[in-house]
Amino acid sequence: MLRVILVDDEPSARRGLRRMLGQFEDVSIVAEAGDIPTALNSIRHFKPDAVFLDVELTNGTGFDIARDLPPDTFIIIVSAYDLYAIDAFNVAALDYLLKPVEPQRLETAINRLRERTTSPDGYTERAEESMLLDGAGRIRLKTNSTTILVQAETISMLKADGDYTRIFLETGQTHLISKLLRKFEPELPNPPFFRLSRSHIVNKGHIRKVERYAANKSRLYFETCSETVELGRSATRRLREILNI
């Protein structure tokens, strides 16, 4: 059973989506929320498989919730506007549904959720090519066109990029790898690598500066990698614990 939470500040929108989801026998709506605090409390309590998330909420945006979701909770954006597509991509949203939601598009989103939360018969993690190559700490990174070897210690950050992961090296180079970010987490040494959010794994040793820019939020800068990372409340809290600050 797929356990989902609906987050929308319009009761009529929640009613409509609830009615549409009722056609799927394997989908259970475990909670609904119309504001960010209620949504976060419900997510912590029910630990759903997915959150159907409106963007424009009365006390913030759905992305304030999305950035702090656990990696194994999928996001399906439901919005009346298509201008948030890039932001949805940055938080690794599973799908983006435009209001009014079309039944076929909703079915596509549910099928994607099913694929991500269940494994095909006979599938095992061993079926994937192992990432770690040898005891010297060299890692195999497979792109669409080639396979490269890098030292794990040269990686500054890994960032979710849809169904891919973008690797940022201390040299300034980046590589787009055909592998989900969550697949990397158990294979990287911890420390120095830490999962900060559903979209980011960082190398603690490459962090240069942490800059607070809003209440309980921060920006992260690296020694050589030019990419900066904006962290929400939960990710900032995890980072402060990791750095003992």
Rank of each mutant, 00 (worst) to 15 (best):
E32G: 09
A127I: 13
N190I: 13
G205V: 14
E170W: 09
L40Y: 04
D163S: 13
R105Y: 11
R140P: 07
A80L: 05
L220I: 00
K209Y: 03
V150A: 00
D54A: 01
L188K: 01
R240Q: 09
Q151T: 15
L169F: 11
Y96Q: 04
P103S: 12
T236N: 13
P70M: 13
A109T: 02
L17D: 02
I77M: 12
R15K: 12
S218C: 03
I201V: 10
E56M: 07
R182H: 08
N244P: 03
R67T: 15
V30K: 05
K142Y: 05
A31Q: 03
L21R: 08
H206W: 10
L243M: 15
R208I: 06
L98E: 01
R3S: 12
V55Q: 01
I110F: 02
R3Q: 05
Y81A: 09
D95M: 15
V55A: 01
G60C: 09
N190S: 05
R19P: 03
T61K: 05
P186T: 04
A39F: 07
P48W: 04
D82T: 07
V4K: 10
R219T: 15
E102Y: 10
N244W: 05
S234Q: 14
S130F: 09
I201L: 05
L98W: 02
G22P: 05
D49S: 01
F46Q: 13
L196D: 09
T147Q: 07
R116V: 01
V150R: 00
Y81Q: 13
E56Q: 15
T224N: 12
N203G: 11
H206C: 03
V202E: 02
A92I: 06
T224K: 08
S12C: 08
S79K: 02
H45D: 09
A88W: 09
E125T: 07
R208Y: 08
S199W: 01
L69V: 08
R116I: 04
V101L: 02
S226P: 09
K99L: 02
S199K: 00
D35N: 13
Y221Q: 08
D26G: 14
I5E: 01
I139M: 13
L180W: 04
T171F: 14
S28H: 14
I77A: 03
